[in-house]
């Protein structure tokens, strides 16, 4: 990425980016978990997270971001895919059709009445894949000279 040229005098951008990154990141986590009942979900959450990282990339540069977040995004994609497939395939082993989801409501101490849903695990897989793929794309293109 040609951000190196912009590197002079972008202190304000860098400072703001740090704060905004966390705001977007936590918002994306919220959106991800809220997805089952209100607008949101794995796709939007994943995209928001990656856009937060992209913002960091623009404010700093790829090398710095790589140092802060030493994540292999290809592995992240693979993990997401496996998680999604495993959630989908799990019911087979208990004698239910492929892709049966389970859910129930629990009374957790801090959260009150909460529903725990295997669909959330599947959605987490989607989340990981989306972040992984987006960042793979940005990173590979950006690093190519």
């Amino acid at each position: 990425m040609k951000v190196t040229k912009l590197k002079t005098n972008d202190l304000i951008l860098q400072f703001t980016a740090k704060i905004v990154f966390f705001i977007i990141f936590f918002f994306s986590i919220h959106i991800f978990f809220a997805g089952h009942y209100t607008p949101g979900g794995g796709f939007v959450g994943g995209l928001l997270t990656s856009s937060a990282i992209v913002l960091l990339v623009i404010a700093f540069d790829l090398k710095t971001v790589r140092k802060i977040l030493p994540i292999n995004y290809m592995y992240m994609t693979a993990t997401g895919l496996i998680l999604a497939l495993a959630t989908a395939a799990f019911p087979i082993f208990v004698g239910k059709p492929f892709f049966t989801h389970f859910f129930d409501y629990f009374n957790l101490p801090l959260f009150g009445k909460t529903s725990l849903h295997t669909a959330a695990l599947f959605d987490l897989g989607v989340f990981l894949v989306v972040v992984g793929v987006t960042m793979t794309i940005i990173q590979t293109i950006g690093e190519d000279e």
Partner: peptide, 16 residues
């Protein structure tokens, strides 16, 4: 399906 957001539930459950 134990969800409220129909679009999301279609994505992860009905048409997973």
């Amino acid at each position: 399906a134990g969800g409220g957001n129909i679009v999301n539930v279609i994505l992860v459950d009905y048409r997973g």
